[in-house]
Amino acid sequence: MSTTTRDVWVFIEQRNGKPADVSLELLCKGRKLAQAMGGAVKAVVMGDSVDALIAEAFRFGADEAIVIADRALAQYRTLPYGRILSDLVREHTPRIVLFGATIIGRDLAPRVASATRSGLTADCTDLQISNVNYLRKEYADLLLQIRPAFGGNIIATIITPDNPVQMATVREGVMEMHPADHPVAGPVTRIPYVADAVDELLAIVEQHHEENRVNLKAAPVIVAGGYGLGTRENFKLIYDLAHALGGEVAGSRAAVDAGFVGPDRQVGQTGVTVRPRLYIAVGISGAIQHRAGMQESNKIIAINTDADAPIFGVAHYGIVGDATEIIPRFIEVYRNKLK
């Protein structure tokens, strides 16, 4: 197996010139992966006004930036982005290419993987570099691509042993995001945009973004309610507790399906992945799908009437009892301590 480079590329997803959080998370992770292999992490930036994107990429640990800037790339479109990135991958053969498992990442990555015949693993929740023995062959520094499978019931580790380029999309929020300790303003390679007729086959007529999106990912404290609360009336207690603690309200899928809380507040495999300082799960039994979205939280308190509920398996503190009694008591105790 000849390996051409040891570089990790991170596709920097942007909306209106601002980088997506997941791209910055991937730079942090990419830095560690590149260090483990003795390579560099490079940010691939496409857009119109890209200066702020490049600065952010370096702040979060990129060693280099590859930049393609043009008005035609202001908004993400499959064809120009996919075509350009495929050409770059073919030309430079990075060892690893990472994308956020967002709508854009999941639209773009398979296109690039197909064009370059690379292996691609979707929705990873962890990435590691490791030596691997697979079918009696030794492989040095392979990317272990770890992801839930079969509706979250199993965790699979996928490898791409015999391929020069290993690609993965990674779920938003599962990797840590922090600026690099010693950021450098590394080299910037600017590549001119060359138009192609296929780019014009699809045009964006209009875009609509909902404002005031709930930002669960940024909340230090999250109080989440489940179907176990029984009624929408009882679910109001979740709002009370969140309000008292200065936190955000979230819900399990069952709570969302029951109409207790909106889908934008759903935590879990089909919702958001969060890692707050404190996560309080109330009346949530703790199906795998839910746990996948919150088990990385710093501290977890579980409140449930069923002492055998799986949620207690990931909790640091467990309280068995009726939430309609415990929550008002918790709020009262907390307010008294603050006095």
């Binding site: 015949r117 690379s118 292996g119 691609l120 693993t121 691997v132 697979y134 272990l144 691509q145 839930p148 499978a149 979250g152 019931n153 199993i154 965790i155 699979a156 580790t157 996928i158 490898i159 791409t160 042993p161 015999d162 391929n163 795998i288 746990r291 088990q295 799986p310 207690f312 398996g313 990931v314 909790a315 640091h316 503190y317 467990g318």
Partner: peptide, 17 residues
Amino acid sequence: PTKVYKVESVVLAGGDR
């Protein structure tokens, strides 16, 4: 190009609860 290297059932962390 992609191969399943390992499959594990999801285990609960816990322990110090």
